[in-house]
């Protein structure tokens, strides 16, 4: 099998570094851990990999209450309890109350799939360690029925983290890691072009000047992200705002900045902005 399988998609531009990381993870059959500022396209990457390789995508959205086992299977005790009390179904067959989770399902599919474990850091500190064994061996046992599920096709596992918690070292050692750095102006121009192909060059230039200026302000508490930039441009275009207006008064700032303090600060700082041109 060739190494360079994933090259990005029409809608998703992957940097060479990211491509190499994705491909080495696929080739070595290791989970790929993706970190990066919010809005840099961590989740979208999994979609792009699935699309690029023509595979199905299974998503496991991790929550603060998620347990490692939930991803493998859930034994629906409540349903069985109900059946025992009110139902007329045969409750001796535990098998029918076992429901595979996203990780478990990804082992059972007839074709190789991409499994996205989204925001792994939301769960308990020990959560990633609980998955180590299953991710290594690609098999697990259902205790209640003593059945062993083994992956026929190892799924391509993509894990995202927002840095809410430190991930355990043992887990990190087994992952391929990539940090998506914030796109520079050149890369950003390409990204915007994908979403707004008809945007005028001059307008794009102005928008990016304003956008990166905002990001450079250390006082801004929540720096605007790529997805917010795309939305901002959409808003500007729909309203038919011209480039002069962008230079002068940054319309629809609410799309970019979400904190009240940031708005207050920006209105005070705008005077200083002209220096940058």
């Amino acid at each position: 099998m060739s190494f360079q399988q994933f090259t990005g998609t029409e809608k998703y531009l992957a940097s060479p570094e990211l491509r190499d990381a994705v491909n080495v993870a696929i080739a070595l059959e290791r989970p790929l851990l993706i970190k990066g500022e919010p809005g840099t396209g961590k989740t979208v990457l999994a979609e792009a990999v699935a699309e690029g390789l023509g595979l199905e995508l299974l998503t496991w959205n991790v929550k603060s209450t998620s347990k490692g086992r939930d991803g493998l299977y859930v034994y629906d005790t409540v349903e069985r309890l109900n059946d025992a009390r009110f139902g007329d179904r045969d409750i001796r067959d535990i098998q029918r109350y076992i429901k595979l989770g996203p990780l478990g399902s990804s082992f059972r599919t007839p074709k190789r799939v991409v499994l996205l474990i989204d925001e792994i850091d939301k769960a308990d500190m020990e959560f990633p360690n609980d998955l180590l064994h299953e991710l290594d061996r690609m098999s697990f046992t259902i205790d209640e029925t003593s059945e062993t599920v083994t992956a026929e096709h190892r799924p391509i596992v993509i894990v995202t983290s927002n840095n809410e918690k430190e991930l355990p070292d043992a887990f990190l050692r087994r992952c391929v890691f990539h940090y998506i750095s914030f796109p520079d102006r050149e890369m950003m121009t390409d990204i915007v072009r994908v979403h707004h192909p008809k945007l005028e060059d001059e307008l794009l230039r102005q928008v990016l000047i304003a956008f990166y200026w905002l990001r450079d302000q250390t006082e801004v508490r929540k720096r605007p992200s790529t997805s917010e930039l795309i939305d901002w441009i959409a808003a500007l275009r729909r309203a038919g705002i011209d480039k002069k207006a962008i230079e002068e008064n940054l319309p629809f700032l609410g799309v970019l900045l979400k904190h009240e303090q940031d708005h207050e600060w920006i209105s005070g700082a705008r005077g200083r902005r002209t220096v940058l041109h």
Binding site: E17, V24, L33, L172
Partner: peptide, 12 residues
């Protein structure tokens, strides 16, 4: 450089 970083360095 990319491969070694992805495989050896696990924290940004």
């Amino acid at each position: 450089y990319h491969l070694a970083r992805a495989l050896l360095v696990k924290r940004e």
